[in-house]
Design a binder for these strands. Structure first.
Lengths: 125, 125
DNA sequence: TCGTTATATAAGCATATGGTTATACAATTA
DNA sequence: TAATTGTATAACCATATGCTTATATAACGA
């Protein structure tokens, strides 16, 4: 077996982390922190559309962050590994300390632009 | 102080995690796992262009993942918090176990398409 | 079997993202 | 001061991303 090159590992790790880097996927993962859920339960909990949730779930499963189990016509999703929970918890913990910096981040701010004023109020208030 | 809404926290956390979700940023962060580095050292270590590194560093700093310290005309970057190291290590650890799934992920595969054949050989071989 | 419910996929669009080149700015040195 | 070196920013482009609508597939119930 050929060793996985640094470059390949890098791309793969980045791909893995993409699972956490989108608000929709993150809300799905956080929903699953409470335990296994059917797709429609995830749809309800997150408020996202069914096709959108389904698409994100496929991605998360392909990337190994969640696993599935079929039950009749239902499909039950769950976090696949305790380290996924750990990363979610670490990011929450880190968020609490660096929130100010993140809010002021001028990159990737399209959606959050509207939130900025309120956000600053919230963190500084 | 108004509580930070779930939705706002979600967006912010996702933004934070974006720092880890790109191969270039990840290579910068992993370079910094070895300790503080000047920008040009990061450029050398990663093989990325100087403006590209500088741009990613700005993002990482704005998002709170790295911090800086000036030394004459040099700027020294370092990981800002032990939890950043932890997340990097967890993702490496997780990668080792779910690599197969990630490689076969059909989403976000533009750059890795060319690597696929080699990758499968590497993981399965 | 037929309709209904649960989930997945496809096509298409608006926009975000990452990279490059060129250039600005800042600090050091001759 | 002028030239050089280190870093940051701007403008631009090709492409990836996420969402919506429409539709397919699958399992269940009447």
């Amino acid at each position: 077996m050929v060793a996985i090159t640094d470059k390949t590992a890098l791309f793969t790790k980045a791909k893995l982390m993409r699972g956490f880097s989108d608000p929709s996927r993150l809300s799905i993962l956080e929903t699953l922190l409470d335990g296994p859920r059917k797709v429609n339960e995830i749809v309800m909990a997150t408020g996202l559309s069914q096709p959108n949730v389904s698409s994100h779930l496929s991605c998360l499963r392909d990337c190994g962050l969640v696993s599935t189990q079929s039950q009749g016509k239902f499909v039950i999703y769950q976090l696949s590994d305790p380290r996924v929970n750990e990363i979610l918890n670490l990011s929450s913990s880190l968020l609490a300390d660096v929130a100010r910096g993140v809010y002021e981040c001028t990159r990737y701010e399209p959606e959050t632009k509207l939130l900025t004023d309120l956000s600053k109020e919230q963190i500084n208030g």
